[in-house]
Simulated assay, not measured.
Amino acid sequence: MYDPVPQSGRPHLLCVVAARPNLMKMAPILAAFAQVAPQVRVTLLHTGQHYDAAMNDQLFADLGLRAPDINLEVGSGSHAWQTAEIMRRYEPVHIELAPDAVLVVGDVNSTLACALVAAKLGTAVIHVEAGLRSGERSMPEEINRVLTDQLSSLLFTSETGARANLLREGIVDERIHFAGNVMIDSLLRQLPDAVPPRVALQAHGHDCPPAYGLLTLHRPSNVDDGARLAALMAAMADLSRQLPLLFPIHPRTRAMLDQAGLGEVLRHRAILALPPLGYLEMLGLMQGARLVLTDSGGIQEETTALGIPCLTLRDNTERPVTVSEGTNTVAGTQPAMILAQAREVLRTGGKRGRIPQYWDGHAAERIAATTAQWLARRMTLP
């Protein structure tokens, strides 16, 4: 049971996680606070936005992330329902804990919901991975990013272009700090323990092809429209004749495939349908892939760090540094274009890219040190 009694003289930071990418960002942050800023008392709150055991409990174990002090157990629902329910459940917890600041990561509904509650209660908000923009306001994540940044007092960016986005939106420069990418902190820390592809596939009843591509799909814009999903899967079946595809299927995507009657595609012998995988399994599969096809922002970053060619199955990306400096190409959603670019990667080996600045495994340490100094200054103000 968590004891909410404040410890005199120690700043109290409440850290919020909710979904798979949040955990990969938060694990190095908590480790860094323990190492470089032990004077900060850290509470970990999980909203329960993701509750699938394979996407939650296994990740905590893989990342060495301690169990949350509090779990709101919100579960899934529409964007409006989920955001409102998180706020409803989070507010009394926040009032009871009375933290000095709330740290949120990424761009999920929990990020915005908890930031909004904290800001309205007069508590400072810290946003890690601030300033990323796709320019596509129809994406719920884009709304969450923009609004969370407007509510935040301290904003940590993961790539150099994010500062310009924030300044253009009226964020004061002194609130912005370029720290680097905490996702890459987790990747570099866990890479030695990545599960070899052969071992991961054998655990799920498959032999590992000598060469393969890795596919992930979960964005509503791709999977909620049955016609678009069918077209994408037809293109993947076509590509798999040239390169077998491993397809760990997100629960949302599985449901939409079933609803759209696309089960036959999953029985295609060159598309290996897999359940949601742990972080170390996914890391091993990415590292061994000839090509990754995805609509995930985090995977765009991870493939750049690993030097693996990536095709993003979207019309834009909020992580442009993975295109300008890394191994990522925005392939769009038209099957013919995706297939043409995939075959070009197989012919040429794809983009080589380079590692962006501060994707060095020490972003979390910079965040912890800057936050601790910032909190100390705030606590000494009259």
Rank of each mutant, 00 (worst) to 15 (best):
L245F: 06
P244H: 10
L277V: 09
L257P: 02
A237C: 10
L243S: 03
P244S: 06
M256I: 00
L262Q: 14
R269N: 06
A235E: 05
Y279T: 09
R267C: 10
P248V: 02
A237I: 09
E264F: 06
A235I: 03
A273Y: 02
M233A: 05
A237V: 10
L245C: 09
A255L: 04
P244C: 08
L274S: 04
L239P: 00
I249N: 15
R267S: 11
S240H: 01
L246W: 07
F247C: 13
P248D: 00
Q259H: 02
L266R: 14
L272Y: 04
L277E: 04
L266Y: 06
Q259R: 15
P251D: 14
L239R: 12
Q259L: 07
I249A: 15
L262I: 14
F247S: 09
R267E: 10
A234E: 07
G278H: 07
S240V: 01
T253I: 09
D238K: 08
M236Q: 11
R267Q: 13
A270W: 02
F247V: 14
L243W: 01
S240W: 00
D258H: 09
D258N: 05
L266F: 03
R254W: 08
A237T: 10
G261M: 04
R241W: 09
T253W: 03
V265I: 11
L280N: 13
G263S: 13
T253N: 10
L232K: 01
P276A: 11
Q242S: 13
T253L: 08
R254Y: 05
R254E: 14
L272V: 07
Q259A: 12
D258E: 14
L239H: 03
P244K: 10
A260G: 06
T253V: 11
R269Q: 04
V265P: 04
A235W: 00
G261R: 07
D238C: 08
E264V: 14
A235V: 02
A234S: 08
D238M: 07
L257H: 03
L272E: 04
A260Q: 12
A237F: 01
R254L: 13
Y279E: 13
Q242V: 07
A260I: 06
I271V: 09
A273V: 05
A260D: 06
L257Y: 01
F247M: 08
R241C: 15
R252H: 10
R267W: 03
L245D: 09
L266C: 15
F247A: 15
P244F: 06
L245I: 14
Q259S: 12
A234R: 11
D238H: 13
L262R: 12
A270M: 06
L272N: 05
L239K: 08
I249V: 15
R267M: 12
S240M: 01
R252T: 15
M236E: 04
A270P: 00
G278N: 08
M256W: 02
G278S: 06
R241V: 13
